[in-house]
Design a protein around this nucleic acid. Structure first.
Lengths: 339, 339
DNA sequence: CCGTTGGTTGGAAACGTTTCCAATTCCTGT
DNA sequence: ACAGGAATTGGAAACGTTTCCAACCAACGG
């Protein structure tokens, strides 16, 4: 069934029918009413391919989730989809784990279909420096800072990861901790781990401590098992740690387990701070002190930025949203002994 | 840039170019080679809208996730997308929470775009009985049993939820528990909660216990906060419970917190069994005894079923995959006193 | 040398829309 | 009653493919 069938049956021309479909002006109420009635009667649905072909509008917005298993991204995805759906934009999601070639292939594949827009959640973007500069499709990075990466053509939404990590580690330092280990982040997770690490380093330095990467830092993927194994290794070689800062809640969750499995208690023996404020840290035993970044808000802003670019062609922007340290039960104060 | 540009530049006709693009026979090697070269040189990408328009093939596979926040679904989504991507099928995801009208609107919306296929994760399908019978688009239900729901036209993949729940509660009973509370499941979560509840009921009955729905059961959404609140209420009114069976791991995670917040210990005072085997139960403190259903396998089978219907028009099937009770640390045996 | 066969090839038609332009109708003020 | 403008309308062209059919060519057997 065709737009022509509707035209014929309603007694109007295809042009008029098309105008009705697209809610355009210059259609008499009588015509609109009649056409709508016929469409309803025949159960007509416009063919989206023909439509998109003509309008040279494109396939849906492509979303890349780089880091399967990072619950934080799952929390962002729902609100993102909802916000975009409100404006009638679909998303096509591609889940990727770190492997660079796989990521590149996936991006090429999606680019080839000329998506209207693109959204990147997490991931290591550095190695796409070359190709990313040429992206003209409206795109937004969530959870990574496009301007810092040097992509002037891409928008982005993040919290200030450096400041947030600094406040997390600062919290530990204020509570008297001096031997602080750090877990999480690696090449595949890219900038985000790096920034948080840098923030941690700064906080330590402000207290006159130089981070020993070999001993007190252990990288890992943002998944539970990564956090578990990394923390086990860390504790193995640096048994005197009194606190651990996990670069993500998923990691923290694994870390908590690892600490307990060594027969230590949180926060009794080791204090723990996470990052993201996912359900993990809210409901685990003990509840984990963490940095809240509001997934819904991040998603909402990302959607607005993308929509802006889509609709008005507004240019690339970097946007910061607030974070907050939320104190829970996983940090214990240490009395500092006089030296 | 056009297929015509390629034709012109290569010196062949558009028909031949099209045949090359689609890997069809009846093209000389010389022609194929030349055309491929020109395509590469010009960086040509066929327009998928024009293509689909002509081929009357359709938009991507639509996936509905009914129950935002149920981590089990997040675990399925990645592998599902990967399996489909291997066969060059895209998915567009819609996240929904329970509200029936919202769900109906979303399904209508997607149906109108004539997706190639549809996949439903979870959700309450009962109220779609009327409309679901008319679905001709190849579709598969993951986590719900189409045949039991009476949808002969839809495929589905599940574990045997009844048997699994029975073995979970059976496990508790064997360990000497007699006062067992149940949390999770509600109208919006549909069949899945019902089936598990039924399994639990059976196990109890086999031990001569009749489930008191008013006292020992508390429904809730499959999210952490739901589990927390439901369990709090349950414990409030039935303080003598020695074990809790949560109908999903997310719920179990909230339940664990609720139990601890009442000053009770798991498994010291109250034993806990979950369902799904997500990362929650694997890494929480204590680790939670649960029913493993293999998300990757579920996803893989769902993809195959859908692909089968897409490619060979194979008809709707219901498939069962294995489950397994995995014993961890959240259940303690009770010595039964002689009565 | 010619009719036949089978593999190549070109090009027109069709897919179902939107958009533009010209034509028509309807008002309005005089 | 009529000119002039605005609102409405119809229809052709275009979007970028695939597909079908007719045409071509080379090889081959008689």
């Amino acid at each position: 069934m065709d737009i022509r069938d509707i035209a014929a049956k309603s007694g109007y021309g295809v042009g008029t029918v098309s105008r009705v479909i697209n809610d355009q002006p210059n259609v008499s109420d009588r015509a609109r009413e009649r056409i709508l009635a016929v469409m309803a009667e025949l159960g007509y649905e416009p063919n989206s391919n023909a439509r998109y072909l003509k309008m040279r509008s494109q396939t849906p917005v492509a979303v890349f989730v780089m880091g399967v298993g990072n619950r934080m991204f799952d929390d962002i995805l729902g609100p993102l989809q909802a916000a975009l759906a409100r404006e009638d934009e679909q998303i096509v999601v591609t889940y990727l784990n770190g492997d660079i070639d796989e990521v590149r292939a996936a991006i090429d594949y999606q680019q080839a279909r000329h998506p209207k827009g693109m959204v990147f959640l997490g991931g290591e973007l550095e190695s796409f420096r070359a190709s990313f500069h040429e992206i003209e499709t409206p795109s937004v990075l969530v959870t990574a800072d496009a301007s810092q990466l040097g992509f002037a053509n891409l928008s982005s939404v993040t919290i200030d990861n450096v400041a947030a990590a600094r406040s997390a580690v600062g919290h530990l330092l204020e509570r008297g901790h001096r031997r602080i280990g750090i877990v999480g982040g690696n090449r595949a997770s890219g900038q985000i781990g790096e920034l948080r690490l840098r923030g941690a380093e700064q906080a330590l330095r402000e207290h006159g401590i130089e981070l020993d990467y070999e001993r007190d830092f252990e990288p890992c993927d943002f998944i539970e098992v990564g956090g578990y194994e990394a923390t086990s290794r860390l504790l193995e070689r640096a048994g005197d740690l009194t606190a651990v800062f996990a670069l993500g809640d998923v990691v923290a969750f694994g870390a908590l387990r690892a600490i307990v499995d060594r027969g230590l208690s949180v926060p009794g023996d080791v204090s723990l701070v996470g990052f993201d404020d996912t359900a993990f840290s809210q409901y685990s035993v003990p509840r984990i002190t963490t940095i809240r970044q509001d997934a819904a808000r991040l998603a909402e802003r990302a959607a607005q930025l993308l929509l802006g670019a889509l609709r008005d062609g507004s240019s690339a922007t970097h946007e910061l949203v607030d974070f907050e340290l939320v104190e829970r039960e996983s940090v214990r104060s240490r009395v500092l002994l006089a030296k």
